[in-house]
Measured scan of single mutants.
Amino acid sequence: MQIFVKTLTGKTITLEVEPSDTIENVKAKIQDKEGIPPDQQRLIFAGKQLEDGRTLSDYNIQKESTSHLVLR
């Protein structure tokens, strides 16, 4: 499924993911596309910070959901 990640600069990154993917996996995909190390990434969805060990389905992130990327 596709999800979108919006950066603070207003850029939207499109990612191909599975509901069973962990947040860690998603951060690795963002690193592949954008070159941002996962330890600098914070992903926010529905006002919550997403934890590495959880999956997209844990957070009820469905296709075409948009989460926000904040850099630390």
Rank of each mutant, 00 (worst) to 15 (best):
K29L: 10
S20T: 13
L50I: 04
G53I: 07
T12K: 07
A28Q: 13
I36N: 02
G10A: 03
Q41I: 10
T12C: 14
K48C: 10
F45R: 03
D21E: 09
I3L: 08
E34M: 15
S65Q: 08
V17E: 00
G10K: 04
P19Q: 07
S20E: 10
G47T: 04
T14R: 09
I13P: 00
H68I: 15
Q31M: 13
N25K: 14
L71V: 12
I23A: 02
M1T: 05
I61G: 01
T14C: 13
D21C: 07
L71K: 06
K27S: 01
P37Q: 06
G10F: 03
M1A: 03
K29I: 05
E24A: 15
I3F: 05
I13S: 01
S65I: 08
K27T: 02
N60I: 04
R72E: 15
R72Y: 15
D58W: 10
E16K: 08
T66A: 09
N60T: 04
D39C: 13
S57Y: 09
M1R: 03
I30N: 00
Q41N: 03
D52S: 06
T66H: 15
T22W: 04
I3S: 00
F4A: 06
I3P: 00
I3A: 01
S57Q: 13
H68C: 13
T55K: 10
F4P: 03
I13K: 00
E24T: 09
L69A: 02
R54F: 12
Q2P: 06
V5D: 01
E16I: 13
D21V: 04
L15P: 00
I13M: 05
E64D: 14
T14G: 05
S57W: 08
I3W: 02
L15W: 01
Q41L: 06
D32M: 14
I61N: 02
L56K: 00
I23N: 00
S65V: 08
F45E: 01
T14P: 06
I3K: 00
M1I: 10
T9C: 15
E34H: 07
I30Y: 02
T7N: 06
R72K: 13
F4T: 09
L50W: 02
F4Y: 13
T12P: 03
E64A: 11
T7Q: 06
L15G: 00
T22P: 05
K29H: 04
T7V: 09
A28L: 15
V5F: 06
P19C: 07
P38T: 14
T12W: 12
T14M: 12
G47F: 04
H68V: 13
Q49P: 11
K27D: 00
Q49M: 13
L50A: 03
I44A: 05
T12E: 06
R42K: 12
L56H: 00
Q40E: 10
L50K: 00
L50C: 05
E24K: 12
E16D: 12
V70G: 04
Q2L: 14
E34C: 15
K27V: 02
G47A: 04
D32T: 11
A46F: 09
D52P: 06
S67F: 15
